[in-house]
């Protein structure tokens, strides 16, 4: 049940999807991977919208050169852990929700623990190796992954529903090389907003999700485009059932 303050806070959303819808958001637990440019937009809009529990994880401290785009953090936060300033900002925006801000690295060892209790994964990372980890974790747990990435004026987004849609590895089988990317805060704004809209729709069960489609934003030409994606039947991340069974069979044969 929503309390009176929540009814007032979310009045404009309740006009959109009713108290039932708002309660669905309140019951949702989201994992925001990263408190950088995308993580700022994603977590701020999710906090404001009333997703009930937000776990945001980042291992870095705020640098002056982050502030052009990472709107979770202010000038006074330079040198502080991003998780700390994120926690203050998100809790300040919406004290009705639970914010669980963690200083930590997302890796193979930590991810399972970090994802405990989370229903949705928001990709706000800055590299593909970690994104592939998030992809595999989403597939294992059968929870959705909302992918976003940016570079300068350009961005991309897609929604991954395990078992139903193409996974991140189907769409991007191989990672681009690591680099320091140019970044514009408003590009993070566009892509992060798409990710949050997708998460809202997923929780409400409304609209048409950005599954099996890669949305491409070109801010320089003000063009939004999309390309179709299909599940790759040989994808090593999402179509490995047969391989697993084959391996088990081999193990059995060897044991015998």
């Amino acid at each position: 049940m929503l309390n009176q303050a929540e009814r007032e806070r979310y009045a404009r959303q309740i006009r959109l999807f009713g108290e039932d819808g708002q309660e669905k958001l309140k019951k949702s637990s989201v994992f925001v991977a990263g408190a950088g440019g995308l993580g700022s937009v994603v977590s701020i809009y999710m906090a404001a919208a009333g997703f009930g529990r937000i776990r945001i994880v980042d291992c870095d401290s705020v640098e002056l050169s982050n502030l052009n785009r990472q709107v979770l953090h202010g000038s006074d936060d330079v040198g502080r852990r991003k998780a700390r300033s994120a926690e203050e900002m998100l809790q300040g925006i919406n004290p009705e929700i639970d914010v669980d801000a963690i200083v930590g690295t997302i890796d193979e060892d930590s991810l399972d623990r970090l994802l405990q209790g989370c229903d949705l994964i928001m990709d706000a990372m800055d590299n593909f190796p970690t994104r592939y980890l998030l992809n595999r974790a989403a597939l294992q747990r059968k929870i959705p992954l909302f992918h976003g990435a940016i570079c300068g004026f350009q961005g991309q987004a897609t929604t991954i529903i395990p078992g139903k849609s193409a996974c991140l590895r189907c769409i991007f089988p191989r990672a681009p090389p690591a680099a320091t990317f140019p970044a514009l805060g408003s590009t993070c704004g566009v892509i992060g907003s798409v990710q949050v809209t997708e998460a809202v729709k997923y929780v409400l069960g409304s609209g048409e999700l950005l599954t099996d489609r890669l949305m491409l934003w070109d801010g320089l030409n003000s063009c939004m485009d999309e390309v179709a994606c299909v599940r790759d039947s040989s994808c090593r991340d999402c179509c490995n059932k047969y391989n697993v069974e084959t391996n088990n069979m081999w193990n059995n044969v060897e044991t015998e």
């Binding site: 990263g34 440019g37 990435a149 769409i171 970044a183 299909v230």
Partner: peptide, 29 residues
């Protein structure tokens, strides 16, 4: 608008009016 696997499908014949899309993924956050 359908992704092809460049390791296998670059020799795919194109037809008149076909559209070829090319881009690198972006990776920043």
């Amino acid at each position: 608008r359908k992704r092809i696997d460049p390791r296998q499908d670059l020799s795919t014949k194109l037809n008149d009016g076909d559209e070829l899309v090319i881009f690198p993924p972006v990776a920043g956050g």
